[in-house]
């Protein structure tokens, strides 16, 4: 099971990856859309957790580009903004249940990861 975490706050995303690893979930992390695309070119990720607001390529555009590389990839969006518009866009892109507002609870994110993977017939 391959998971990619994308957020421009390195401190946040690296700690989240470490906490997931403590729970037996291996996740790679990157801090930009460009890095995410480069990684996705080399690795076949099953799921990506994306911050919506990242420099240059926003999370929604990044999702579309990642999907071009891997159409089966699942997505969970994270945001610091809980705006109605963000919720609407993310609901369309990934489903309303795959939208998280920061700060994120580790157990909630694991539940969402499990749920997203279950849809594609996979599990952690």
């Amino acid at each position: 099971m391959r998971i990619l975490l994308v957020d421009d706050e390195a401190e946040l995303v690296s700690t989240l990856a470490e906490r997931l690893e403590i729970r037996g979930i291996k996740a790679d992390w990157v801090v930009s859309g460009e890095e995410a695309l480069a990684r996705a070119g080399k690795e076949n990720y099953d799921l990506a957790v994306l911050d919506i607001k990242i420099p240059r390529i926003n999370g929604i555009r990044l999702k579309k580009k990642l999907q071009e590389k891997n159409p089966n990839m699942k997505f969970i969006f994270m945001t610091g903004h809980a705006s109605e518009n963000d919720f609407k866009v993310c609901s369309i892109e990934a489903g309303p249940e795959f939208y998280l507002v920061k700060p994120v609870d580790i157990n909630t994110i694991i539940k969402k990861i499990n749920k997203a993977l279950k849809i594609s017939g996979k599990k952690l």
């Binding site: 401190e11 906490r19 610091g80 700060p103």
Partner: peptide
């Protein structure tokens, strides 16, 4: 500004969570 503060809180939240871990 609120986005920036939220990011800080999210990082503190993860670090506090790691301490608990």
């Amino acid at each position: 500004i609120s986005h920036e503060i939220n990011n800080v809180l999210a990082i503190i939240n993860e670090n506090a969570g790691l301490l608990e871990d």
